[in-house]
Design a protein around this nucleic acid. Structure first.
Lengths: 339, 339
DNA sequence: CTGAAAGCGCTTACAG
DNA sequence: CTGAAAGCGCTTACAG
């Protein structure tokens, strides 16, 4: 039945006895085309399993319907410590697919920004979703400088105007701290992310303000900073307990920090949560399987991923710059409440 | 200094006083061009930060230098249970980058194969890396049917000729079983993956043969099958202990199965490894952080990812079909040896 | 060693 | 509502 492959709009035009212009318009549902013609052409295309050629389309339209997800593994390769952005990636992938966008995964060197040029002016992608954790501000500044369309995860840099999605860090830390206070804890430590991270600063702010509102004085002996990794949780918790052995709770800025902290607490002969309550941050899927299951601040990763995609697409189409803060909530598990 | 943007080879041709053909050849290091001309043109391109237009190039060359990584989350979104393919993805991403290929991430519905058409005849990608776990054979058969260039993770289907990379399942299960026998275990259970999985079958074969070689009889009461997930580990371990309460070791076909099994063993009042030794499979990055750290069969994920990329590229260039089996090794941790 | 020209497969003003 | 034609920015036979 099919005696000649149908690969191009020219093939379809011939079969339908119309011009290529008409085929092109019919396939893209142009209102210019009469319904009858459109249906006839679309039927032919379907019957012959026609697929449009994307490079040709991109070249002509100067857009690719492809978005690059920019990240870098915590170690050189991806590992469990990258779970947060992996879960974000899942939500982003499905939302992009729903919008007929493709997803290019770009794993960059966090200390270099030359990836921007490689993907933007080559016409490979229409925009970027920036998920890098290290040196984020350098990447943001460079993206702005070259006027690249992008959206970034995280608190926006004050001096610049660009799209962002972030979790509500102030509320998150307030919820965590209030929960620990309600449990009767009074010597609460802060096991933070990098000190210059805006997210970490906001979380400290919420933490300190909640303590003060409860009539307590934040104690600088109970504050440490580091990366969000398990190994920094181990290091940080050791430092905290060295300085202040009678800590009765710790608010960690990530679930991995919390897991590292719990290991240290137990190694030092104390119990979680009986002696020290531990709260994490993010609620990655691993948090509930941890031992004990982690009380943590849920970042609503799926919702955040959807917003990153939808707001970037909106920006591409309309130029509207959005900065959204996604609600967080407290999830209580056994690391603060005995099971 | 730059008074006119330099975006196309035509712009460079004008600046250099040569034709577009010459620029094109010079930029792709064609030996046809004199060294002097080539250097001069490349210098101009560099100076003006010229980036080649990929869609135009793809349209002309009928290849994209893009590979699609085909997978699907274990649940609808990515979670910790997807860690195995995530870690594979890391190795694949960097190896593709080294070879100047881009990586398109395609999260498919495991029950449909229509993604093939969407990516192949559209000229979006040159080939596929197939990482789906469910219904793999359907995807493979369809790929072969439409003559799509691809490589698949896993044991090749006997009746077909296509590129694969797989771990050495026979050796893996032999190492695991021999290790348990050496520890003096005699009632060893097999907590397997899906019964129709070729990988699982091979692992059972290695397991059973090693038992027989040691003069033991494989006991069908000590064998269960399911998915590779933690929840199936819980279900399976409960079934095993219901049927055979005096099991003293269990060989699990994934690290997640092992984690689920350990939870059940403890809940039933037994100790790991004192009462029951547990061996996992894969050695995902989480295995060492598990409680207790898992003895497991390391799949050499990085090496496997590199091979998937390199052998697919080789196939694209030469048509050579490779089927490789990557060595595995035993990693002993506390789930079999008291710390 | 270099250039003029055709072609890759689309989209979209322009004209009717 | 439809078509002829130009154009997107490359590559590569073909000719010299």
């Amino acid at each position: 039945m099919v005696n000649k492959p149908v690969r191009t709009i020219a093939d379809i035009a011939e079969l339908a006895g119309v011009s290529k212009s008409t085929v092109s318009r019919a396939l893209s549902n142009s209102p210019l085309i009469s319904e009858e013609t459109r249906n006839r052409i679309q039927a032919i295309a379907r019957e012959h399993n026609y697929q449009i050629n994307q490079p040709a389309r991109s070249l002509s339209m100067k857009r690719t319907n492809t978005i690059a997800f920019i990240t870098h593994g915590y170690h050189s390769e991806f590992s469990v410590e990258d779970l947060f952005f992996m879960e974000m990636l899942g939500a982003i992938a499905s939302t992009l697919a729903e919008n007929n966008y493709d997803l290019l995964l770009v794993n960059v060197d966090p200390y270099k920004t030359d990836w921007i040029n490689d993907y933007l002016n080559t016409g490979k992608v229409d925009g970027f979703i920036l998920m890098t954790s290290t040196h984020k501000s350098q990447h943001v500044q460079k993206l702005i400088e070259v006027q690249a369309p992008f959206i970034a995860w995280g608190v926006p840099i004050a001096s610049a105007n660009y799209c962002t999605v972030t979790g509500d860090n102030l509320t998150g830390s307030r919820l965590a701290t209030a929960h620990l206070l309600e449990l009767g804890r009074r010597k609460i430590a802060f096991l933070g992310g990098p000190e210059k991270d805006r997210e970490t600063q906001l979380r400290y702010e919420g933490f300190a303000n909640t303590l003060i509102a409860a009539g307590l004085e934040p104690d600088q002996n109970c504050v440490v900073h580091g990366w969000f990794s398990r190994s920094c949780g181990i290091k940080g918790m050791n430092q905290l307990l060295d300085k202040e052995p009678n800590i009765d709770a710790v608010f960690c800025n990530s679930d991995f920090l919390a897991m590292g902290a719990i290991d240290v607490i137990r190694e030092r002969g104390k119990r979680v949560p009986e002696d020290i309550s531990v709260v994490g941050y993010d609620d990655i899927s691993l948090a509930q399987y941890s031992n004990p299951p982690l009380t943590t601040i849920r970042q609503n990763i799926n919702e955040s991923g959807r917003l990153l995609v939808n707001n970037l697409i909106q920006y591409l189409e309309t130029g509207i710059v959005t900065n959204v803060s996604v609600p967080v909530n407290l999830v209580v598990r056994e690391s603060t409440m005995p099971g």
